[in-house]
Every structure is written in structure tokens, then in C-alpha cells.
Design a protein around this nucleic acid. Structure first.
Lengths: 195, 195
DNA sequence: GATCTAAGTCAACGCCCGTTGACATCGGTT
DNA sequence: AACCGATGTCAACGGGCGTTGACTTAGATC
């Protein structure tokens, strides 16, 4: 009798899948790190959520630090920046920020992860490098023009501030207040894009 | 032979001073919590900085939790927001942000402390209340004008973002980059103050 | 089917933390 | 001077963490 589990792929079904378990560990790690920070997450908890033994984390990621760095890299997606529209990005971002954080759970989650990373001296240097390479760099290139570095820094600050305020206070804006918020925020963002 | 140590006060020199040691512990605790967060600070480290035994912390504050709460209460200081100058505040704030965080250790520390408090589910509600009452409210009243609430929110976001960016990356700006950073940041802040 | 390697498990070690209770010592009181 | 409570010290315990190495087992290869 052949294996009961689904098969039919060119590869065998193989219950033991290194890539799959590695991904499961990484996914659980991202959630734990986002929710509880570096110090507040325990490898045993991650392993339990991933359904594996804690020792496997060590095998795949070389320890807690390595796991954190892998999760960090996975949480910063630089690809979307270069595709931003120069004309509408300011309004788009402002509108997004005015909405529920839940509507963008994915981004909110990974950003929460980053924010937690910023608050621990252990992880702050790692975050610094990651943000520089994968966030500030693309933004700098994207806005271009003179003094792109300094302007990118201000822009990144505003971006971060909007996200943090969103996280601290999740109540959505409405009515006229929402309009004004979007208008003002878009104006700020736009002013930093312009040379 | 009289005591060698300085005396001559109306009070005896008294090496054993409960209030003084309590204050020393609290001061050290605030610094440690601000720098390293709740999980990252160790009572032995605080005790060492305060020059006392770790067991005393337990006697005076009833444990690490009690010490943290005491430090939190002590870190929510009355604000100087109402005394900001309408003319120079934008440039003042921008200049402050461009400098070393160390140069404004006091504010930076208490802000770091509050921000780290957000990472603990226990203390997060406290932070929300503190931000609303001690920060958003005064800012709203201070800027005044139409739609003060919405504008205050954007302003507070920018403020928070600048602080977080500073937290992540402590390298100071210099030269032309610094000038541009200050100029742009001041322009953003000023635009939000104006009606 | 025998075999060998990768994938996963298990128990335990070592470390460091917060906390505790017994002990020492200072300082005011009588 | 004798006393006593408040103040400070000390050593140790219990627990939880990350990490390790030996062991087991599934799955591919022949």
C-alpha cells in the first residue's frame, strides 16, 4: 500500500521537510519577536508554536541571535519603495495612516517587530544596519536630488512617527478630522520629496 | 577624636539614610530601565550603581515590578510644552534632534523609558494614558486654531518619529547634512503649527 | 532490503536572574 | 552604658533560559 498522505508531486511527500520547518520556525519567530520583543520571547515558545523541538532552532539558525537576524531581514521589504508613484505616494501614505491598523495587519505586524527591535540595546545595532541598507538606501535613491540623505532621514522619521502613533492609538480618524489629518500629512510628505 | 567625615550640619552626617538610598536606587533604576528596558535591566546592576546591596531594592520597592512602577511614575514629569516659544520652537526642536541624544540626556532618557514601557503589555495602557494626557492634550491646546486635534496628531507623530529615529541611530549629523536636516525638519514642524 | 545521511528528539548542563531569610551594624532612646 | 529598631550585608535557593551533544528515526540511494 502506498503512502496515504498526498503525493503525486515529482518530489515525495516527505513529512520531514527542512525548508518547511525552517519556514515554520521563522514565521513563529516573527510573531513572537513582534509581540514580545527580543528578551520577552523564548525559543521554547517559538518551537512549540512551530511544532518542533527547540534544539532545531539552533541547528537551523545557529542560536537566538541568528534567528532574530533572519526574522529581521525577512521583515524589511525594500522592493515596494522603488515602485512608489511620485505623484500619489504622499496622499496614498497619508490615507493609509488615517485608516485602521488592522487593515494593514501585515505591515503593522512587521513594523511592530521593528519597533520592538529598536527598544532593546541588544537588537538596536542590528536594526540600525538593516534599516540603513534596506530602507534608508532605497528611499534616498528614490527621492534623489540634492541632499537626498538628509531629506531621506527626515522622511523616514515622519514615516516612523506616523506608524508609532498608529500603533499606540488605534482609534481611526473620521469625518473632517480625518480629512485634515490626511491633508496635512500628505503636505508634509510631499514637501520632503520635492527638492 | 571627632569624626573625620564632614559634619557641621544641623543634622548628623549619618551614613545610613533611608530616603537617600531610596532616591539613589530610584535614580539608578530610571537610567537602567531607560537604557535597557524592563527585561534588560538587572537589579544587581542597579544596586551596584546605587552603591547598595540588591536585597535593599526588595525592601524598599517590594521587588522589580514595584521598582519599575515607581520609576514610571517618576518619569512622567509635568511638561514644558506650554512654555515653548511660538517663534523658535520649530528650529529649537529640529536643532535638538540633530544633535547627540546625550546632550539632552534628561528628555531622551524619560522618552526612551516611556517608549520601552510600550513594549510590555502590562505597562502599555499606562503609556497610552500618559501620552494622551501629558503630551497630546498640551500640544493641542498650545497650537490652537482650527482642527487643532488633527494637526496635533500629525505634529505628535513627527515628534515621535524624530525621537525614534534618534533612538535607533545615535550618530550625530554634521556639516551641510546637518543644516539641511534642521532646515527641513523645522519647516515641517512650523507648517503644522501654523493654521 | 541494507545502508547512510539528514531531520528531529531528548535530557541535561551551566549560567544568571529575582528573591529570601538569617545575620551584622549603625544610631537614636532611655 | 545598655538596648532596640531601623538599615544594610551576605550567601544561598529555586527557576527558567539558551545551548549542547548524544540518541532516534524517517527517507533517499544502492
Amino acid at each position: 500500500m502506498t503512502n496515504v498522505v498526498a503525493l503525486a508531486n515529482d518530489r515525495a511527500p516527505r513529512k520531514r521537510d527542512a525548508e518547511a520547518t525552517r519556514a515554520a520556525i521563522l514565521a513563529a519567530a516573527k510573531e513572537h519577536f513582534a509581540r514580545s520583543g527580543y528578551d520577552g520571547t523564548f525559543l521554547r515558545g517559538i518551537a512549540a508554536d512551530a511544532g518542533v523541538d527547540a534544539a532545531l532552532i539552533n541547528r537551523y539558525f545557529g542560536g537566538k541571535d541568528g534567528l532574530f537576524q533572519a526574522a529581521l531581514k525577512d521583515s524589511i521589504a525594500p522592493d515596494a519603495i522603488s515602485q512608489w508613484s511620485r505623484e500619489s505616494f504622499a496622499h496614498d501614505v497619508a490615507t493609509m495612516m488615517a485608516g485602521h491598523a488592522h487593515q494593514h495587519a501585515e505591515r503593522a505586524h512587521s513594523f511592530q517587530f521593528l519597533l520592538r527591535a529598536a527598544t532593546s540595546p541588544v537588537t538596536a545595532p542590528l536594526l540600525n544596519v538593516a534599516v540603513q541598507e534596506r530602507f534608508m538606501g532605497p528611499i534616498r535613491d528614490w527621492i534623489g536630488g540634492e541632499d537626498a540623505e538628509a531629506r531621506a532621514r527626515v522622511l523616514a522619521s515622519v514615516f516612523i512617527g506616523l506608524l508609532v502613533e498608529r500603533l499606540i492609538r488605534d482609534e481611526p480618524l473620521a469625518g473632517r478630522e480625518r480629512e485634515v489629518f490626511i491633508e496635512r500629512t500628505a503636505a508634509v510628505l510631499q514637501s520632503l520629496v520635492e527638492k
